[in-house]
Design a protein around this nucleic acid. Structure first.
Length: 266
DNA sequence: ATTATATCCTGATCGC
DNA sequence: TGCGATCAGGATATAA
């Protein structure tokens, strides 16, 4: 279920646990992951773990042989660290990776998650701009928006434009920016682009600080839940009162996905 | 170029 | 308690 803040949170927790560790053995329990060549992982040492868009990248490179293990959690992927090397449960266990000490167990009930091995940086580097990176500036945002007639809410979900937005934060950011989700992306005036830019930085930075949003069961690899759910203003609040005007939060569907907003102040 | 729809899966929830 | 419909934090392919 993870978006940018949740993937960032998981990646950070994995970095703390895995950096410097050597992979002993990796076992796949789900045929859908069978294309991952686990033999290439054995013996590799984790140099770093980070996020690229919504993908977790485990850097296993050596000076002579670059190798990155990409893990995209999609809807329900969830890595769990185990100090004693035993899985907490066998339900939905899709992959096990044992290290010199401890083990990583990957769970995924819906089985949408994907894994891959990359040997070149270009394979995992997102085309879209990361909204948490210095490359994300209001000028850059304005340039990306220019000319697009797509509604701004679905536009925010376009990973080839901005890499990392998901359905929750798209609604939340538009609320903070006081922008109607149906507005054409390219129609935003400079002051509105500025509001969108600042709201994006503000919401996503806060969400990362909180360790992401836990609505049902999101957690980092140590089982710690996020805290941003208590800051959500509109997501999942259809029918409730708006927090800043007398209006009522509404749920609409755009491109097949829920959007939450206040029709009176956005 | 954009948009709608179906698809990949399973589980939780809601109305009857 | 059971049961079908609907929805879910993602992404992609295909049709319109």
């Amino acid at each position: 279920m993870p978006e940018i803040a949740e993937v960032e949170t998981v990646a950070r927790s994995l970095r703390r646990r895995l950096r410097g560790r050597r992979i002993r053995r990796v076992e796949i329990h789900d045929p859908k992951l069978a294309r991952l060549d686990v033999a290439r992982l054995r013996g590799r040492v984790v140099r770093d773990v980070f996020r690229a868009g919504k993908e977790i990248i485990i850097d296993l490179s050596t000076p002579r042989a670059p190798l990155w293990w990409g893990i995209h959690l999609r809807m329900t992927g969830a890595p769990h660290w185990s100090a004693d090397g035993r899985p907490p449960t066998a339900v939905h266990l899709r992959l096990s990776a044992w290290f010199d000490r401890g083990a990583l167990f990957y769970f995924d009930s819906r089985r949408f998650g994907v894994m891959r091995l990359c040997t070149a940086r270009e394979e995992w580097e997102p085309t879209g701009v990361d909204p948490l990176s210095p490359a994300f500036t209001r000028e850059r945002l304005a340039g990306l928006l220019r000319g697009s007639r797509t509604a701004i809410k679905p536009w925010l979900l376009r990973q080839d434009k901005l890499a990392g937005f998901g359905n929750i934060y798209a609604s939340e950011v538009l609320y903070v920016a006081r922008l109607n989700p149906r507005r054409a992306a390219g129609s935003l005036r400079p002051d509105e682009v500025d509001r969108l830019y600042r709201a994006t930085r503000q919401v996503l930075t806060k969400a990362v600080e909180c360790g992401g949003t836990t609505i049902s069961d999101f957690a980092d690899c140590d089982g710690a839940c996020g805290g941003y759910q208590s800051y959500l203003k509109v997501y999942g609040r259809a029918g409730e009162r708006c927090r800043r005007c007398p209006g009522t939060v509404r749920r609409i569907v755009q491109q097949g996905r829920s959007t939450f907003y206040c029709p009176d102040c956005q």
